[in-house]
Simulated assay, not measured.
Amino acid sequence: MAETKPDLKKAAERRKAPLTTPSDLGDNAVRDLTGALNELLADVFALYLKTKNFHWHVSGPHFRDYHLLFDEQGGQIFAMTDPIAERVRKLGGTTLRSIGQISRLQHVKDNDADYVDPEGMLAELAEDNKNLIARLREVHGLTDEHRDYATSSLLDVWIDETERRLWFLFEASRREVSGH
C-alpha cells in the first residue's frame, strides 16, 4: 500500500477559502453584528480571566466565600464564550483567533497587580460587570435594529445573569451596620 503525501499546495489554497455562512441578513448587518459580538466576546474573555485571577489570589477572613463566589461567576462568564462565538459564525462572520486580538478589542481593563485586597476585588468586578451590562444592552439595541432575534434572546439571558453577578458582588461588599 503506497503512502500518500499531503498536497501542501491544495492545503494552502483551502486556507484562503472564505468562511461564509449563508444568512438572510445583509452585508452591513453581518458586519455590524459580528463586529459588536467579537468586541463583546473579547470583553467576556477578559472579565473571565480577571475573575479567575481574583479567585486564585483572594485572601483574608472571607476567603472561602469569595473564592467560591469568584469561581462560580468565572464559570458562568466562561459559559458565554462559545455561544457568542457560534452566533458570529452563524451570522456569517469570523470570530476571535488569538489573545492578541482579544487585547486589541477588549474594554475590560486588565489587573496585573501583585496584590488586590478582597474589597478591591469585589469593587472592580462589580464595576466591570456593570459596564458589561451596558455593552450587552448596546449590542441588544443593534440586534433589535437588524431583527436578529436569536441573538437578542441570548442577550436577554446574559443581561439577567450579569445583573445577578453585579447584585451578588454588591451585597458581598456591603458593610454590616451595627444595631440592625
Rank of each mutant, 00 (worst) to 15 (best):
L142S: 08
A42W: 06
M121E: 13
R135A: 10
L19V: 07
A172G: 06
V88E: 00
W158H: 14
V30M: 01
T81A: 10
Y66N: 13
E86Q: 03
V177K: 14
T34D: 13
L91A: 00
L91D: 01
T94I: 12
F63I: 00
H146E: 04
A11F: 04
H57Y: 10
Y66F: 12
R14Q: 12
E138G: 10
T162R: 05
R97A: 05
Y66Q: 14
D82S: 13
V116R: 12
Y48D: 11
G120H: 01
G120A: 03
T95M: 07
L69P: 08
R174V: 03
G35T: 14
K109A: 14
M80T: 06
W56K: 00
L40E: 10
R15N: 05
S153N: 07
L91F: 01
F54I: 10
W167S: 05
G60H: 06
V58T: 15
T51P: 10
D110P: 00
D32T: 15
T21I: 12
I77M: 02
S153D: 03
T4A: 08
I77G: 01
G179E: 00
T51C: 10
K50L: 13
A36P: 06
K9D: 10
G120S: 04
T20H: 13
R97N: 02
N131M: 06
V58W: 08
L40Y: 11
H67M: 04
